[in-house]
């Protein structure tokens, strides 16, 4: 059953990419435990508008955990305290009356802040653009059943492909490493027959672009896996490392 919460929010406010930001404290009363975390922020913003203060900018869209747009550090945890949960799926029933909640944007050199809690994640797009695909033009495809894919491989490939591209892995990592994100895409195609033709080049190009974007090295502490709302395993990083090693030893032919 629903209860009402009084909360203190400490929210990162920053006017623009080049201005200095700071935490600002807000008090909210009567927040229903049935609300989602973002609905709580909606209420705050409605109150700010009434007070003549500019509302807090934050990214969100589908509000059902699949688009990867929402992106908040909540009390130091990417997407908040629950496992396998995006910020938009987090509900206020997970908080207590009189809690103080600290809300920050993703912090990573490769994800610069645009405003308040909104960051620029286009680095992920640029990594995708160098290899996150199978080079097949429309019109060239053989019949869908012409190449059988063992069920276990298809399932594993899907386990990798469910990445929502939110960047929580980067935000959770002390080194702001993107290896879980890249590892997931590399693994998806390494596991499928359709990905074989470009297997060597794909891992080399994606890893090179990842480094170029300013993401750090893997810390091997698995914070990324713990933060990932899609439940992607660090096995993806191992597979990427193996693929990279094989590509380096065997070389691009």
């Amino acid at each position: 059953m629903s209860a009402m919460l009084d909360l203190t929010l400490k929210i990162w406010r920053q006017d623009g990419p080049k201005t200095r930001g700071a935490f600002k404290t807000y008090h909210l009363k009567g927040i229903s435990t049935e609300m989602s975390f973002l609905e709580m922020l909606d209420i705050l913003n409605e109150q700010l508008i009434q007070l003549g203060e500019e509302p807090v900018a934050f990214d969100h869209d589908c509000r059902e955990g699949i688009c990867g747009m929402c992106s908040l550090m909540i009390n130091g945890q990417a997407h908040g305290p629950e496992t396998k949960t995006t910020t938009c799926q987090l509900h206020m029933r997970r908080f207590h009356n009189h809690d103080t909640i600290v809300i920050e944007p993703w912090r990573a050199r490769a994800f610069p802040v645009i405003r308040d809690l909104v960051v620029d994640r286009t680095a992920f797009d640029r990594i995708q653009a160098v290899g996150g695909f199978v080079s097949i033009n429309v019109g060239n495809a053989p019949d869908g059943n012409s190449v059988p894919v063992p069920k276990v491989n298809a399932d594993k490939a899907l386990d990798a492909a469910v990445c929502i591209g939110c960047g929580a892995c980067v935000a959770a990592c002390k080194n702001a490493s993107a290896t879980l994100f890249v590892g997931a895409k590399v693994s998806q195609f390494a596991l499928l027959p359709q990905g074989q033709a470009e297997r060597v080049q794909r891992v080399q190009k994606m890893v090179a672009q990842m480094d170029k974007e300013g993401f750090g090295s893997c810390t091997n502490t698995s914070e990324c896996e713990a933060a990932c709302p899609a439940g992607i395993s660090v096995e993806m990083i191992s597979r990427m490392n193996l693929e990279f090693l094989k590509a380096t030893v065997v070389g691009a032919t």
């Binding site: 495809a141 053989p142 869908g144 059988p148 063992p150 069920k151 195609f189 359709q194």
Partner: peptide
Amino acid sequence: DQCVAQGVPFAREYGGT
């Protein structure tokens, strides 16, 4: 056909279809 060729991991039967 196009989506399979792109590497979309559709659900499969044990025989791979």
